[in-house]
């Protein structure tokens, strides 16, 4: 709220994340996994939708949001993911295809944000940290998948694993430049 220049944050990516959670948590009220699982789903949904609402509605933020540079077209990500989900899924039911779509979409949802960072020369710290921790969170999943693969029989989820791996790869070069800027204590800039 303090630094109202939402220059670095991509509204496109925020909207894609809201779509990811909306299509992934359709089973929230039908399949109870655990209190933690339900609470976190509510947190993910409320936080992603409130960020989108805030960036769209709030006059102060909307004015400073960098819409001229945040021009990545959603449909170039949403449509291929939807088609892929219709072709490759674990079960051909509405909920399962929606869930698979959300898995594919989450893998590429960060792209508008990374493109925006490349376009805005000076990346402010908050945005850089935000993207870094988004990527770090995702890479921790890979550790979790390895652990579960070796401790749980029949724990095989190719769709989740491959999408999660692709998503982490997309962050790889960002991590490289981010950690370099942190190590050399210089401003984070991404190559054009």
């Amino acid at each position: 709220r303090k630094n109202t220049n939402k220059r670095g944050v991509s509204l496109k990516t925020q909207e894609l994340y809201a779509l990811v959670f909306a299509t992934r948590y359709l089973d929230m009220f039908t399949d109870f996994i655990s209190l933690y699982n339900t609470v976190m789903k509510l947190i993910f949904l409320s936080s992603s939708f409130s960020i989108v609402w805030y960036m769209r509605r709030h006059k102060l933020v909307r004015r400073s949001y960098d819409k001229d540079h945040d021009t990545f077209r959603h449909q170039f990500l949403v449509l291929p993911c939807l088609i892929l989900a219709l072709l490759i899924h674990e079960q051909f039911t509405f909920k399962e295809v929606m869930w698979t779509f959300s898995i594919y979409l989450e893998a590429v949802a960060i792209l508008p944000q990374l493109v925006l960072l490349q376009r805005t020369r000076n990346i402010d710290n908050l945005t850089g940290q935000y993207v870094f921790f988004l990527g770090a969170y995702r890479s921790l999943y890979i550790l979790n998948w390895i652990y579960r693969y070796f401790t749980e029989p029949h724990y095989v989820h190719w769709i989740t694993w491959i999408s999660g791996f692709v998503q982490t790869l997309l962050y790889a070069d960002f991590f490289y430049y981010y950690l370099n800027s942190w190590k050399n204590n210089v401003k984070l800039t991404l190559p054009a």
């Binding site: 089973d27 399949d31 996994i33 655990s34 699982n37 789903k41 079960q91 989740t160």
Partner: peptide
């Protein structure tokens, strides 16, 4: 019927 695929991860 088909067993429902359970997704227990966020």
């Amino acid at each position: 019927g088909l067993e429902t695929v359970e997704h227990d991860e966020l």
